[in-house]
């Protein structure tokens, strides 16, 4: 799979190229953007799911999402193994 490596190298350089300046910008942007963590509703009029976060219920959502994702990924891994076994069998 030479193509995959090629694609990955391309993507990694692209991701690194864009994420790099982003880190550098953080300090300058921190002063200009609205503070997210501030609990006072007066500082931000735009409604977000702050209450859900304060209750800790967001972690339930994250747990469910991670479980679903892991389930799908484990399925993919087992499929990968099955195909690998077939390939080995056919080669013999």
């Amino acid at each position: 799979m030479k193509m995959h490596k090629w694609l990955l190298v391309l993507l990694l350089t692209w991701a690194a190229g864009f994420s790099g300046p982003a880190v550098a910008q953080t300090t300058s942007e921190a002063t200009s953007t609205v503070e997210y963590s501030s609990q006072a509703p007066a500082s931000s009029s735009i409604e977000m799911a702050d209450m859900m976060r304060r209750d800790g219920k967001i972690y339930i959502v994250v747990a469910v999402l991670v479980s679903v994702l892991l389930g799908v990924l484990l399925y993919l891994i087992s499929l990968d193994k099955k195909i690998g076994r077939l390939e080995r069998e056919l080669r013999q």
Binding site: T33, V34, Y36, S37, S44, I46, E47, M48, A49, I58, V61, V62, L65, V66, L69
Partner: peptide, 17 residues
């Protein structure tokens, strides 16, 4: 998934969360 749900995002009108 974890970072997407838990990290801070900008407060934008209409879009919200």
């Amino acid at each position: 998934v974890v970072g997407g749900m838990l990290t801070e995002v900008p407060r934008l009108a209409i879009l919200n969360e």
